[in-house]
Each structure stands twice: as structure tokens, then as C-alpha cells.
């Protein structure tokens, strides 16, 4: 019985420390821009959840697609209903792992020291119900306990089964530029 109790305490400690390693946010920012010769528009999302575990180098994003805000209310509705079908696919996710931390910086492992780390993550991106293995180069900025994940990337709508009708091809680009900026903080407890 004593052993069980002790095991219990040990487990508790283990769990506590494991969770202490995870940095999280619920208010990360993702922007995207579509540029064509005749039209440019952008949308902004401040409700991105993201997590990073410096111990395991795992990274995860969860993006509520309906939370993208446009400058035109109609464009926002069309984005939700006609392009992203958010009733069916409410979230986009990315789950990956840091592939290589540049050699020079690997000395200060586990992202404990302040600084900017150039990293490349590799993982699974799911959007509009389509899963793709992608590699994203980005930066991890450590500053006084806040770990900020930033990256710029572009995706092709056609890769994710997002159909742009012929009539809109001149104003909606197939190639969408995305920028990610998520400051994470140490997650206490769950």
C-alpha cells in the first residue's frame, strides 16, 4: 500500500514537470494575404491556439477558421461558406516537430536562453479536410519566459481542394501568403 502511495506521488511529480514544459496561447495571430494583379485582400485571426514543448521540440497549432476577420463582411461570409466550408471544416491544424535547430544555436538547447532561433519544422497540416506533410521554416524568439513562434509561408488553395471559380480567378489568388505570430507562455496545470 505504501508503495502505491509513493508511486502516486511520484506520478504526480512527473506529470507536473511534464506539463511545466509546455508553452501555450489561445490568442495567437495568423494573417493571410491574397494578391492578384487587380485585387489584394487580407484577413486577420487573433484566436489561434498554439503549443510548443521545448523538451520534445513538438509544435502544434489549431486555427478556428471562422475567426478570420475581413475588411468586407460579405467577403468573410463567402470565405466561410463558399471557399473554406467552415460548417464542415471548422478548424485548420498543424502538428509538427522542429527538424533542425541551427548548429550554432543547439548549444543553448531547450530554448531556455533569450535569443532568436532559426528553425525548420516538419509536420502535418490539415486544412479544408485535406492533410498534407509540409515543412515550415520559422523563428522561435525566446524573451524572458515568453516564446514567440513566427513564420511566413505560402499555400496553394488547389493543394487543399479549395476551389476558386473561374469568374473569381482574377481577384482571388491561388497562392496565399500566410504569416504567423504566436507569443506563448508557460502553461501551468493542464
Amino acid at each position: 500500500m505504501k508503495k502505491i502511495i509513493i508511486t502516486g506521488f511520484l506520478l504526480a511529480a512527473a506529470v507536473g514537470s511534464a506539463y511545466a514544459q509546455v508553452y501555450k496561447t489561445g490568442t495567437g495571430n495568423i494573417k493571410f494575404i491574397s494578391k492578384t494583379a487587380i485585387e489584394e485582400f487580407s484577413a486577420n485571426n487573433d484566436q489561434v491556439t498554439a503549443a510548443f514543448s521545448p523538451k520534445t521540440n513538438a509544435i502544434a497549432f489549431r486555427v478556428p477558421v471562422n475567426a478570420f476577420q475581413f475588411k468586407s463582411a460579405l467577403m468573410q461570409k463567402h470565405f466561410q461558406e463558399n471557399y473554406m466550408q467552415t460548417a464542415e471544416f471548422p478548424f485548420s491544424t498543424y502538428s509538427g516537430k522542429i527538424e533542425d535547430v541551427a548548429a550554432a544555436q543547439s548549444a543553448s538547447a531547450n530554448f531556455t536562453k533569450n535569443g532568436t532561433y532559426e528553425v525548420v519544422t516538419k509536420g502535418t497540416h490539415e486544412m479544408h479536410g485535406v492533410k498534407k506533410e509540409i515543412t515550415i521554416p520559422g523563428k522561435i524568439i525566446v524573451a524572458d519566459g515568453v516564446i514567440t513562434l513566427t513564420a511566413s509561408m505560402s499555400v496553394l488553395c488547389s493543394d487543399y481542394g479549395i476551389n476558386i471559380p473561374a469568374a473569381s480567378k482574377k481577384s482571388v489568388s491561388d497562392n496565399i501568403d500566410i504569416s504567423i505570430n504566436c507569443p506563448l507562455q508557460l502553461s501551468k496545470g493542464k
Partner: peptide
């Protein structure tokens, strides 16, 4: 959940969406 903390499922931590 500790077992689920394996790298590929860090995403599970985010299951509780803000919206």
C-alpha cells in the same frame, strides 16, 4: 495524458478551442 504527450499529439492539448 502523460502518455499522450508524445510529440505528434501535442495538438491534443489544444483540443479545448477558444472559440
Amino acid at each position: 495524458m502523460l502518455q499522450a504527450q508524445d510529440d505528434s499529439t501535442l495538438l491534443d492539448l489544444l483540443e479545448e478551442p477558444m472559440v
